[in-house]
Design a protein around this nucleic acid. Structure first.
Lengths: 245, 245
DNA sequence: GGGGAGAGATGCCGC
DNA sequence: GCGGCATTTCTCCCC
């Protein structure tokens, strides 16, 4: 593909707000929240209709460089190379891609108004506990409202028959030191504000040994609870998903 | 593009460990660490040479669905549709993409052994403080070694002339409640272990009001320090980057 | 827009 | 492998 043809295709796609992808040999400089340099290699470059730019190497999950939605892209010739220059003036971010050779340019206007529906996250866990408080203990009663406080958002907030306030912090995976610190912050502040005894509970499928020790040192406790998989029950694709071997 | 041609191209690219990209109208089901459903829409699908799979919608920074490196991909016909089924047995993750229509298949073997060199991260900040301890205070002396402890990794660890141990937690952006909690955890544990007074300092360009209050309540302090932009000085592209307006 | 916290977080390093 | 934590985190929600 000739340089001038590539530039035409690039600008045409950009103007029409299409999504486009090409592969190229390039080197990259980024300047913004941090500074980064990437030496010459072959990559995939994606530009979306909101002007998001992604640079992917041939391996790995995450983009090696990127520009957030709203960047402005400019392509021009400098000596033997093409330069793709992206700027986000609002965020003061700048990206320079020196393109040595291009391959496989494709472009298309894509239509997609759908959003991912997700289940099994922490919100599902706290909802599950609110609707089934007995999974915590026989005498646990959640308050009707959630607590959004200055010192943070409390997942589940309630009381027991002995008059203790109970604060529950949910984690989808193994609870760690930082999660115990988070719980402690809430417990201390609520105890201070209300002047009543406060029980702190971590609800999680697992907890690391160090976190468990710290939890017990501070008089808190851990309740083993798994995140519910809501969609698995109702999903019509269940059978085919269940068939995986 | 005919279904059978697409299948051939797909399998050929997969076999040769190429990176390939296509656009398609599809619907998606994921089952693994969570459960997710994405209704019909047009997306970009990328498969890399390490079998990473990414699904991108026409807008936004992050992939809407993905499979990590090491997945196994299988493409087959079911009724009027193509099914792209990806499995990661080790992680017990499964992805089904029902493809209604395909566009723009491209594929290429990509060569890239380069790694991103990054400056201005937290490590650079702590190095900067170790090499220039006076940015903290006139009498601050860092110890020679970093501290990797059971209760966490301490960024900068030192002492002052009054015999206080000093612990510094670096943040490259605004420090928040959780960062103060993290500092507190280190300070308490070191004070307990060593039986000496411990000063806690947050080094960050900014700090949120709530975090600052909590910091002061606990007797810690905040030192305003910006992350160093090491590459900006030495980078030969400086001029062109500096030219941005 | 800022603050706070989760995420199918990801990725890195150390033990 | 797990543990602990930074990330050009990203994203969402709420004030």
């Amino acid at each position: 593909m000739k340089k001038t043809d590539f530039i035409d295709a690039f600008n045409n796609a950009l103007m029409k707000n299409e999504c486009f992808v090409f592969m190229c040999s390039c080197e990259i400089n980024y300047s913004g929240r941090a500074e980064a340099v990437l030496a010459k290699g072959e990559r995939i470059i994606i530009i979306k209709s909101d002007n998001t730019l992604l640079v992917h190497q041939p391996e790995g999950n995450t983009p090696v460089n990127y520009m957030k939605p709203g960047a402005a892209h400019e392509l021009f010739i400098e000596g033997n190379n093409l330069i793709l220059r992206s700027k986000n003036l609002k965020l003061k971010e700048y990206l320079d891609i020196v393109i040595h050779k291009t391959h496989n340019f494709v472009s298309k206007r894509l239509e997609d108004g759908q959003k991912l529906e997700l289940a099994g996250n922490e919100k599902d866990m706290s909802d599950h506990i609110k609707n089934n408080p007995s999974v915590i203990s026989k005498d646990f009663k959640p308050f009707s409202r959630e607590e959004h406080t200055k010192y943070g958002f409390i997942d589940v907030f309630g009381h027991d028959k002995k008059g203790n306030v109970v604060i529950i912090e949910c984690k989808r995976y193994a609870a760690s030191l930082k999660d115990v610190s988070q719980l402690r912050r809430y417990v201390e502040k609520v105890a201070e504000d209300r002047g009543v005894p406060v029980k702190g509970i971590i609800a999680a499928p697992k907890i690391t040994p160090n976190a468990l020790k710290m939890l017990e040192d501070w008089g808190f406790s851990w309740k083993q609870i798994n995140p519910p998989m809501r969609l698995r029950k109702y999903n019509k694709h269940q059978k085919s998903l269940g068939d995986y071997k």
